[in-house]
Amino acid sequence: MTFQLIRKHKLREEYALIWFAASLAIFLLSIFDSIVAFLATIFAVKYAPTLILVFGILFCVVLLLAQTVMLSVQANRIRDLAQSIGLLEWRLRELENQPLDELPSSLLTDNDRPDNGHPLTREALLTHEVPMTHESQIKHLTA
């Protein structure tokens, strides 16, 4: 199952590892059921299968927490991306509407200026400044 998901690019390897480990653990426990009995005596649990449930739930809770953290990180990144898109789009519109020599100087930050000191062409500024996706590049060329 995990193999299939990875093969079809639906699961990234970094997350697959934990599922491999989990399935391996279940596999081992079902083959060597003496492990459960052994663990039960260590933890002084009377009914051994309870131990499997407890560890199962613990595993799920930890996994959920980890996923919520990842989700939050990604939500922040998505917000930043959306804001950048808005600001970049504004900048692009501004650049397309105005000739370059009338550009407010603040639009040219130090990062924009090539080191060789040649005056920027409009094309150079556009391609340098706006990292375009494939689609938007096509749109831009046809516009």
């Binding site: 990180v73 922040n76 917000r79 930043d80 991306l81 600001l87 900048r91 930050t109 400044e129």
Partner: peptide
């Protein structure tokens, strides 16, 4: 992670 900004360009 709290440095929440990649401002345009």
């Amino acid at each position: 992670p709290l440095q929440s900004h990649s401002l345009a360009g």
